[in-house]
Amino acid sequence: MSELYLYPRWVRLWHWTNALLFILLMFSGASMHFNGVGLLLDFQAAITLHNTAGILLTAGWIGFVIGNLVTGNGRHYQVQLRGFLKRLITQSIYYGYGIFNNAPHPFHPSSEAKLNTLQQVTYIGVMYLLMPLLILSGWAFLFSVYLPETLFGIGSVWVVAMSHLTVAYLLILFLLVHIYIITTGETVLTNMRAMLTGWHRDTHQETEA
């Protein structure tokens, strides 16, 4: 049985703020996008909520990047190329096969590496590719007057709108998989508890010296 303090307070605060903003953004975004369909927000209220949450999300993302630069948390996002493919395949085989046969977890978080390779790649893609695209396209929506009239020969507002929409859908997909995957810890709630308390428990792992 080991207990590791993996998630410092600022990471947890950022994570749950981000989660809340994500839910608000999804709901208000859907209310704008599918306005008129039942159970959605009033159009103007949705716009205000969506934009406010978007601004806060931007601030949160900047905070996250700065946090990773000035604290040790950034090391979890540095890919170790040695054995990368092997680790990635091992992890994928576990989720696709081993997990149904009660195989042991191939990865055990440590203070050096709290993310398995599959997680790491996903989070890098989400935080350093999709999130910037989402944020940029969101702001471009608001300040499209400063953009050229056309981008790639198509009206720029349309390009911006479609980018924002596509990235938003990809992030919804991420969120669904993310919420599911965190239940694949030692118990269904192990990972969730870790993000709430900061402490990761692992009965199959000896406490580090």
Partner: peptide, 25 residues
Amino acid sequence: AVFNEAYVVGMSRSPLIDRAALAII
């Protein structure tokens, strides 16, 4: 940035992307 009066309902809609994304989801 907060109130954006310019937004037009449906301006972000694309039946292709919507259908594909909802199907994938």
